[in-house]
């Protein structure tokens, strides 16, 4: 897959790091400001797609990236369900319980187990959207035309 012209490549070099950082900010502050796992995950996926579109890549590199990202996505989903079940097996025996200590309202490290949920859900959404994009490009690349 061909990349784009040099102007696009230079602009992407400057901007994509800030978009990634903004996505991580929205994910981590999910219990204080609007946003959370879903919206932040989509922003992080946006920055990854920007880099892939601007620089291109040949076929084998894209296939290797897709298999690696699938493993990351599956691991993140298993971690979400494990945190939900950890309340069921140890401790208070209730599914989906909030069992870590809740701190002071308004601080970054507070609200028990919610920031962990936000981080894992954000990782999973970002890798899912990146896999959808990569699969469609790989399908177009492997056709004989």
């Amino acid at each position: 897959m061909k990349g784009m012209t040099i102007i696009v490549k230079k602009t992407t070099q400057l901007i994509s790091g800030m978009v990634f950082l903004y996505g991580i900010y929205v994910i981590i502050h999910g219990h204080l400001t609007p946003g959370g796992g879903f919206a932040g995950g989509v922003i992080v996926a946006g920055s990854l797609i920007l880099v892939t579109l601007a620089y291109g890549g040949d076929f084998l590199k894209l296939v290797k990236e897709e298999s690696g990202t699938t493993i990351v996505e599956s691991l993140a989903t298993i971690m979400v369900i494990l945190i939900a079940t950890a309340g069921l097996l140890f401790g208070t025996h209730i599914f989906f319980n909030n069992f870590l200590p809740k701190g002071i309202v308004g601080h970054l490290v507070s609200a028990g187990v919610l920031p962990l949920y936000n981080i894992f859900v954000g990782t999973e959404v970002a890798s899912s959207i990146f896999i959808i994009f990569l699969s469609l490009i790989i399908f177009k690349e492997e056709s004989p035309q």
Binding site: T70, I71, S74, L75, T77, I78, I81
Partner: peptide, 8 residues
Amino acid sequence: VGAFLIMI
């Protein structure tokens, strides 16, 4: 959990 374990 089974579905995602199969994928890995």
